[in-house]
Amino acid sequence: MPGYKNLSIRQKQIVWAWAFLAVPVVFYVVIRFYPTGSAFVTSFQEWNLLGTRAWTGLENYEKLWNDPVFWKVFRNTFAYLIIGTPFSLVISFVIAYHLDKTRFMHGFLRMLYFLPFMTSAVAMAWIWRWFYQPVPVGLFNNFLASLGIPQIEFLNSTTNALPSILAPAVWAGLGFQVIIFMAGLRAIPVTYYEAAKIDGVGWWTVLTRITLPLLKPTIVFIVVFSSIGFLRIFDHVFNMTTNNPGGPLNSTKPLVLMIYETAFSDFDMGYAAAQTVVLFTILLVVSLLQLWLLRGDATK
């Protein structure tokens, strides 16, 4: 490459960057953006997967706007986000923070917290559903009954069902977040802690002045990623409410479950695509907002 040597450092960087990105960009365009684009197109069509597609303009979006179930689902989706993200963030940080300071049987403890993330979601949802049953079979209600406390309807209730389903979702995802936090904590150079030790500052100061600021890239990742996760929640709800998906009375139905049902039970692909476009927009706005709020120079 005769020309390469004459380029400025900045220009060389640009050349290298695009050389690195060449294969991935082709991959993403073909495998990801093309199907995404086709979903956007489908949202203006009527198509039952089997027959031909017909253009319908904005009809699917109008239908969505006027669908009371959609608005319920919309609220549920945000409920998962607003309850799920902060809870799982705080719990997993506390666990990771303390695990990080524990040496005795460290690997074993870490495995205990990670195991739920590895186990089949279908099998675990069944176990949880069983735990939540009323007496005589439900574990929790049996426990309450043995204390003489009245029964709680966990799943067969429009108010309790959503948090009852969120709990196993948080439980299963905790291990994932703990591992990421651990990796982040361990990436903080020890120098800073040693300097702090020499200065003799307390643990709270170390936490708020050193650990948290240096953990920022990790926190950004977990906040954005777990928000996407909760806004896209599907598996846990679907498996927990398998006999009455998203029920009772749609009180636990998230948007992705609505999309799934519209696409693969109703075979109304155009309507499902319109819902997908809405989901996409929500996710994009929330993610960009979070990245913007948490922006700042995190490289130092």
Binding site: R32, R232, F234, V256, Y260, A273, F280, L283
Partner: peptide, 27 residues
Amino acid sequence: FRFPGRYIVFIAILSTLMIPTEMLVIP
């Protein structure tokens, strides 16, 4: 790397997280 289009590429890649797999399997 600092290069034009960096942020766009990042957001574009990130945006692939925003489509549920269920809608991709048919294409």
